[in-house]
Amino acid sequence: MEENNEGLKSEKHSKKENKKNNAEVLKLIEEKNSLNDKLLRVSAEMQNMKKRYEDEISRIYKYDGESFIKKSLVILDNFERAISMDDDNLEDEVSKFLNGFKLIYNDFKKILDDSGVKEIDALNKLFDPNMMEAVLTENDNTKENGVVTCVMQKGYLYNDKVLRPAMVKVNERVSE
């Protein structure tokens, strides 16, 4: 009888123990799962970040030197302004001088060309705000509505990215 009681007691005890152990195991499993989940998330985030940064770096490489080229466009503009002063009469001093300018200008333009810088073709084209910036309008009813009538400052693309939009005058027909 006594022994039996003892046995029951210990059985009860071990049941209690088991229950406690089970709870602990469950807790550990839960903890493990949550840690695992966290690890996966962190790893995924890291991989995603890596991809984003790789994309960004390749973009940076593609447009390498962009800010330098952008700044140097001013020189190109100024050469053009100087050359446009020429009256095409090659006799006078100014023209001879400007001829030298033209040579330098062409050299410079070639360097930009070779680096992937392209002029935006805007004149007589339909105004496109993706590549052009309108600064003036004109009302010429002989021309199409929304057509660029004058390029005031040339725009440039650098490997298909707008380096500087073309500054243009756009026609707005006055409705009769």
Binding site: F127, P129, E133, A134, L136, G146, P165, V170
Partner: peptide, 21 residues
């Protein structure tokens, strides 16, 4: 923000066409 025909422009492009529209 700009509206041009059926197009809606936002940001840089909208700013660039402001004068004509």
């Amino acid at each position: 923000v700009a509206f041009k025909g059926d197009d809606e422009l936002v940001g840089e492009t909208a700013k660039r066409q402001a004068v004509t529209n």
